[in-house]
């Protein structure tokens, strides 16, 4: 499982980085979204990968922490998901505003000079 997940993270990150370096705003926005998946999964996997034991505690009694998934990366990633939505929205708006102002969807606001 670890091998698959880490390879998945690698593919997501590689696609994200590739798109990040592209000249069109839409490519960059998709790249950022992919990169945020990769990063979220990466942070999430820094806890322990546990199958079938969500961090929901019994009400009272002794708790053996190692029997549950690590809650801390989960809460970190939860806020990261919401924030990455917000930044995507912000970037989208900047993108369409810049498109309206400059008339192009190139990231520099003008086509490459040849």
């Amino acid at each position: 499982m670890e091998l698959v997940l880490s390879m998945a993270i690698g593919v997501l990150a590689a696609s994200g980085i590739w798109l990040l370096l592209r000249p069109r705003t839409f490519q960059v926005i998709v790249g950022l979204a992919l990169l945020s998946y990769a990063v979220n999964l990466f942070i999430f996997s820094m806890g322990r990968l546990t199958v079938g034991a969500p961090p929901l505690m019994p009400k009272g009694g002794f708790v053996n922490p190692t029997a549950y998934a690590d809650p801390l990366p989960q809460s970190l990633v939860l806020t990261a998901i919401v924030i990455s939505f917000a930044t995507t929205a912000l970037f989208l708006v900047v993108m369409i505003a810049s498109r309206g102002v400059t008339g192009t969807d190139h990231v520099d606001g003008k086509e490459r000079e040849t």
Binding site: S6, I9, L12, A13, F42, S45
Partner: peptide
């Protein structure tokens, strides 16, 4: 660049996990 980046992150993730 993207390939190297992805491979590095994958390796790092695997080692950490």
């Amino acid at each position: 660049v993207a390939g190297i980046g992805g491979a590095c992150i994958a390796a790092l993730a695997y080692v950490m996990m």
